[in-house]
């Protein structure tokens, strides 16, 4: 049974326990299975649109994210309709900057932070977990004592603690969120290694004199990868939420950078006058995170990953 769980810090949802695929001997490749799943297909399509928008932002919007004009706090308008002089499909902010443009450029920061942090924490965390699980002994004890300590705290709080220590800024935010997610990957990798280490093919490799590094890379890692992929996918969405939260609190990237969290934060001052400033950037976060969650959730069902 696929399970819904809340492990330590991150809430993991699951679309249903009834979606387990029949096990057949000839399993179609993973992309076909993903496209067969409605949630995954929807998630993938939305994500492609978002990535496209982030990459080709300058070609999509005529405005610059920093350029101002005299249309301060103007609601969503299209040129020619109701006498509007310029098109600002999502309106403008207090400095007369086009909101759609700022949200579009904000996608870049969110995706960058999401992908960068998860890559870093995955590589570090999986390495820690593999080393701890494979070698055991005092290495295991030291590494896992630390991981357990971190596990006792929610990821977001750890990120806040780390920003408290390192200071704000894009690099520090990426470092803070990466370190905050380390424990998830380390624990998954370690528990997979503990299972795999006893398998016959590992013993066979050992008996023919394969080195430990070779065994870890060629035999253990490929067999431990499925739950790591699922965790990584879902972590991207938590990282995006985490960055938005830190930016919202003023603990994120520098204030002039257009990021979703900062735009929502700046909307607070004008909350009764300019609803669009608060609503649209939040929707951008929600849609992005939702599509990643759909994808991660479908992956979990397809790869048949259990979270026990």
């Amino acid at each position: 049974m696929a399970q819904t769980i809340t492990r330590g810090k991150s809430i993991v949802l699951d679309g249903g326990d009834d979606l387990a695929l029949p096990q057949s001997t000839t399993r179609p490749p993973i992309h076909k299975l993903l496209l067969r799943d409605k949630r995954a297909t929807a998630g993938l399509i939305i994500l492609c649109v978002i990535i496209f928008g982030a990459v080709f932002a300058p070609f999509i919007t005529p405005y610059d994210p920093q350029s101002q004009d005299y249309a301060f706090l103007e609601g969503p308008s299209i040129k020619g309709i109701n006498g509007a002089e310029r098109t600002h499909i999502l309106g403008t902010d207090d400095l007369g900057r086009d909101l759609f443009t700022r949200i579009l450029y904000g996608t870049r920061i969110s995706l960058l932070v999401g992908v960068a942090t998860v890559s870093i924490s995955m590589v570090l965390g999986v390495t820690m977990g593999l080393v701890a699980g494979y070698y055991g002994g005092w290495i295991d004890t030291i590494l896992m004592r630390y991981i357990d300590l971190q596990w006792a705290f929610p990821n977001f709080i750890i990120a806040v603690y780390l920003v408290a220590v390192f200071g704000t800024g894009l690099t520090n935010v990426i470092v803070a969120i990466s370190l905050a997610f380390l424990d998830d990957f380390a624990r998954i990798a370690r528990s997979m290694v503990l299972q795999i280490r006893e398998e016959e093919y590992v013993m066979a490799a050992q008996s023919v004199g394969a080195t430990n590094n070779w065994i870890i890379l060629r035999h253990v890692l490929p067999n431990a990868i499925a739950p790591v992929i699922v965790q990584a996918t879902l972590s991207v969405s938590y990282a995006i939420l985490g960055e938005a939260g830190l930016s919202f609190l003023g603990l994120g990237v520098k204030p002039t950078t257009p990021t979703w969290g900062l735009i929502v934060n700046s909307a607070r001052t004008f909350i009764s006058r300019a609803w669009w400033l608060g609503i649209f950037p939040g929707m951008a976060i929600m849609i992005t995170v939702l599509s990643i969650n759909f994808l991660g959730d479908a992956l979990r069902d397809i790869l048949d990953v259990r979270n026990d």
Binding site: I11, L13, G15, S237, L241, A244, G245, F248, G261, V264, N265, G278, P281, G282, I285, M286, V289, L290, N293, F294
Partner: peptide
């Protein structure tokens, strides 16, 4: 799904 995808501050 919406609930876990929504930032709490938003």
């Amino acid at each position: 799904f919406l609930g876990i995808s929504m930032p709490d501050f938003w």
